[in-house]
């Protein structure tokens, strides 16, 4: 942890100077246990051969070929696509549709992420190990312990299930359940993101410095109060940063939800592809590129602001308070 940085470490310096230093001056420092001079060459060769073999085997299984794109037949269809794509479709009615769909995509990602944050928080609270001192832990076997264990296992299972199924598969399921349109898209993003954020939140809450948690508990606060007033404020910048990153991911995921009829700009992309309107496809791809770059940029700006040092910490000599180190230090 931060052992080297603790300012108030008051290990008795004098004992060090009186006893350890003289003996250290006489006795030679123990040499570090080194690696053997030569490592097995045969083993290295076997590992390399294994890796190459795995790649070869997978390439064969997927019919991968370097020459396939350049067969006359394929070059012809690529040429047809490129010729059809230029110039991109910039007719006003089509652009209007695109703008409408882009707005819908952004809306899907926003509602989906918000829903995921709201659902992930209680699930993560249940899926969290209570770290810290021994007296607050329920005795194993009791009623409280059994209830706690059941809630923990159930929430972990739910989070794993939500996370294991990709957004697009969730979209397929929800299209069947609630019909076509952006609504199943929102549910699909919310479902998968709840799984991801729930796990991340739970791990963040567990990683809070146990001394900080103990300081909250010894005032007589309940576990819920400690969660809300110690664990959340202590991890707030990282919580926000993770949630924001999830929104970026959802933004990208929302662009393909339309392929299965779950709304957003993907709807038009699938239609244009099927109708061989490559000029429209190019317009859509360019718009998607712009959108992703924009979201990336916005995310970077907000994150920089959220994680920015409050300033002055360095003058106070608190070098350990570099906010960019905090997420790693908590791990």
């Amino acid at each position: 942890m931060r052992a080297s940085l603790t300012p108030t470490e008051t290990r008795p310096d004098h004992t060090t100077t009186r006893e350890v230093v003289p003996s250290a001056a006489v006795a030679p420092l123990p040499t570090a246990p080194g690696f053997p001079e030569r490592r097995s060459t045969l083993l290295n060769l076997l590992v390399v051969a294994g890796v190459i073999g795995a790649i070869w085997w997978s390439a064969a299984g997927t019919q991968f070929s370097l020459s396939a794109p350049f067969t006359p037949e394929n070059t012809k269809s690529v040429a047809r696509f490129v010729a059809g794509a230029f110039p991109p479709n910039l007719t006003p009615p089509f652009l209007l549709t695109v703008v409408r769909l882009v707005v819908e995509t952004v809306q899907i990602s926003i509602v989906g992420t918000a829903l995921a944050i709201v659902l992930a928080f209680p699930l993560s609270a249940l899926a969290m190990c209570r770290t810290g001192e021994e007296l607050s832990r329920p005795v194993s076997g009791g009623v409280r312990w059994t209830a706690r264990w059941a809630a923990y296992s159930a929430s972990r299972t739910v989070l794993n299930l939500l996370r294991a199924v990709p957004e697009l598969v969730w979209a397929l399921i929800f299209v069947v359940a609630v019909g076509l349109g952006p609504y199943p898209g929102v549910l699909a993003l919310a479902a998968h993101s709840t799984g991801v954020l729930g796990k991340l939140y739970a791990e963040l809450f567990e990683s809070v410095d146990p001394r900080l948690v103990e300081a909250g508990r010894v005032t007589g606060a309940s576990e819920l109060a400690v969660l809300l007033f110690v664990r959340v404020p202590a991890t707030l910048p990282v919580l926000l940063s993770y949630s924001l990153f999830r929104w970026e991911c959802n933004m990208r995921a929302a662009t393909v939800l339309g392929f299965v009829g779950a709304g957003g700009v993907g709807t038009q992309l699938a239609i244009s592809m099927k109708l061989f309107e490559y000029d429209s496809v190019l317009t859509l791809v360019l718009v998607l590129l712009a959108l992703v770059v924009l979201v990336d940029f916005a995310g970077q700006l907000i994150r920089a602001r959220v994680l920015a040092p409050t300033g002055g910490a360095h003058q106070a000599g608190a070098a350990a308070d570099d906010p960019f180190c905090r997420p790693c230090e908590m791990g």
């Binding site: 103990e214 010894v218 005032t219 007589g220 606060a221 202590a234 906010p323």
Partner: peptide
């Protein structure tokens, strides 16, 4: 336990404050 702890105030040596709060 919680009722007992309310009656005992502790000043920890360090790392007991939430830095950004």
């Amino acid at each position: 336990l919680r009722a007992y702890r309310r009656r005992v105030a502790t000043i920890a040596q360090q790392h007991s404050l939430i830095p950004r709060a």
